[in-house]
């Protein structure tokens, strides 16, 4: 099978193009998606390819970007709405939570919301307190919404195509730090199923559970640990909803130890949820406390030295593993 090394932004762009070519009801909308060519260049060239009818620049109006996309989806289109960064999705959150996630249920199945909201997520480049959020777990709190968080270009492409085809609303987050990172991608079409975790590395001593950028730190940490004879298994959840924890439970029954790695904040977090579910499902297999590596519980500052201090990295994962593998 022919493969090409493609960065995540290009993989996402290819997914959009393929789905727009396949299905005329798919369209993109958002701030600067058209003539600007997309803030993160994911929608580069789409305006030229598909025209103003299907590539809709919007005002800086995050609430109605999300809300109008919900309405268009209810009416039978398949909008892919871009919220430039997820920091601005706090302005959209009512449309996402109170409408996108509720309409199907509240009206007893009369309406469907086949919607994708794409949002760039994560910190870096000293973006500071208001522009460095990774609030995926907040969105994953609510039934009715799917939350997709790919960790690499291959998954990103297959997951975005799946998200567009699914009849449920999907918040699709894209780690800014991963946009330039390539994966081998087949030229043939493929899909990554909704709500399926993926074991990214096999190992027998400790289970690392993560998603999105945390997978990168986990794999980096696993390589470092391997040099010391510790083999980590890395489970990439890929979707925070539907949450597929079976591979985590299976792995844990083998390793008996777990470190949860997340880019987000520690309170009421992804890590808390995984730890809670794991101890309920596999208490008898637990040989050590479940550890969490997350961002520090502070707003992110500007100065690089202290910004990095607050954030997770591979070394912090290694340190956490060594606390429970002895």
């Amino acid at each position: 099978m022919a493969e090409k090394n493609v960065p995540m932004r290009e993989a996402l762009r290819a997914a959009l193009i393929e789905e727009m070519e396949r299905d005329e009801t798919v369209f993109v909308m958002g701030e600067e998606v058209g003539s600007w060519q997309g803030t993160h260049r994911v929608t580069r060239g789409l305006l030229e390819m598909f025209g103003e009818r299907r590539v809709k620049d919007t005002p800086i109006s995050e609430l109605v970007i999300a809300g109008a996309a919900v309405g268009a989806a209810m009416a039978g289109l398949r909008p892919v709405a871009e919220i430039m960064t997820i920091n601005f999705a706090f302005l959209s959150i009512d449309a996402i939570i109170n409408h996108a996630a509720k309409v199907h249920y509240m009206f007893n199945g009369q309406f469907r919301v086949p919607l994708v909201i794409r949002a760039a997520s994560g910190w870096g480049n000293q973006a500071t307190a208001t522009h460095s959020h990774t609030p995926e777990p907040i969105f994953a709190h609510f039934p009715g919404l799917y939350v997709a968080c790919p960790s690499n270009a291959y998954d990103a492409k297959g997951m975005l195509k799946t998200a567009i085809r699914d009849d449920n609303p999907v918040l699709f987050t894209e780690s800014i730090a991963l946009y330039s990172k390539p994966s081998l991608i087949p030229e043939e079409e493929y899909l990554v199923p909704v709500g399926k975790s993926d074991v990214k590395r096999q190992g027998e001593h400790v289970t690392l559970v993560s998603y999105a950028r945390g997978v990168e730190w986990s794999l980096e940490a696993a390589a470092m640990l391997a040099k010391e004879g510790i083999e980590a298994e890395v489970v990439d959840l890929r979707w925070l909803r539907p949450l597929d924890l079976e591979p985590v439970f299976e792995s844990f029954k083998k390793t008996n130890r777990c470190v949860v790695v997340e880019e987000s904040l520690p309170h009421f977090s992804f890590g808390s949820e995984i730890a809670a579910q794991l101890q309920e499902a596999a208490f008898d297999y637990m040989d050590a406390p479940i550890k969490r590596v997350s961002a520090m519980d502070v707003p992110l500052p500007y100065a690089k030295e202290i910004e990095l201090m607050a954030l997770p990295n591979a070394q912090k994962v290694v340190d956490a593993v060594k606390e429970i593998v002895y």
Binding site: L63, V64, A66, G67, A68, A69, V70, G71, A72, A73, M74, A75, G76, L77, P79, D94, A95, N98, H99, V103, F107, F111
Partner: peptide, 20 residues
């Protein structure tokens, strides 16, 4: 298309339905 209980929330849905 419904009654909606978040005040003015349905206005955004109306724009989307009209867009279609």
């Amino acid at each position: 298309w419904g009654g909606y209980a978040i005040v003015a929330g349905h206005l955004s849905l109306a724009t989307g339905i009209a867009f279609k």
